[in-house]
Amino acid sequence: MKIYTQTGDRGKTGLLSGERVAKDNARIQAYGDVDELNAVIGALAASLGTEDDRLREQLEAIQSDLMHAGAWLAATPESASRAQLHPVTDAHCRALEAAIDHLQNQLPELRSFVLPGGHPRAAWAHLARTVCRRAERWVVHLMQQPQSGGPAADDLGTIIAYINRLSDYFFVLARHLNHQAGTGDRLWRP
């Protein structure tokens, strides 16, 4: 089967729930950014060494969560499509919080801003953090738009909480990867 369908050549695309919308629709922006975030996480996972199998598994679990989040964002509220989907839940947020706490407990206290970068793996984690924030902004925007492709305001609070927590996760993961590589924190000295 050919990968190119040519169905989006006129600037429109279809939501999972069937609506035809412009490709700059807030819902497309939101799940597009979630998709981009997933790709950045894939690049980070690909950069890990064989000694990081546990972290790679954790990143793959996050990628799976984001696939579910993206599908949820691609269906409008009240659509029958959502009945077939797996929503992001509080349990996913709690799992992230546990991972954050585990990483942070191994790190020295931070009293300054850090510059993104350092070891290439940490740089990928910082990039994931910033794409995460952009995805969060679009999901918030989407939630504030009652007519953004759906008949009613969309309750996306759990997805926003998850992405917010994910951004924190990538911040501490970047620090963890820099410390693991011996690079340490790159402190901002204004």
Partner: peptide, 17 residues
């Protein structure tokens, strides 16, 4: 599907597909 989506986008505004 490609051909029908072109028709639907131009002729049936607001349709779900």
């Amino acid at each position: 599907i490609r051909d029908l989506l072109a028709i639907i986008d131009s002729r049936y505004e607001g349709a779900h597909v």
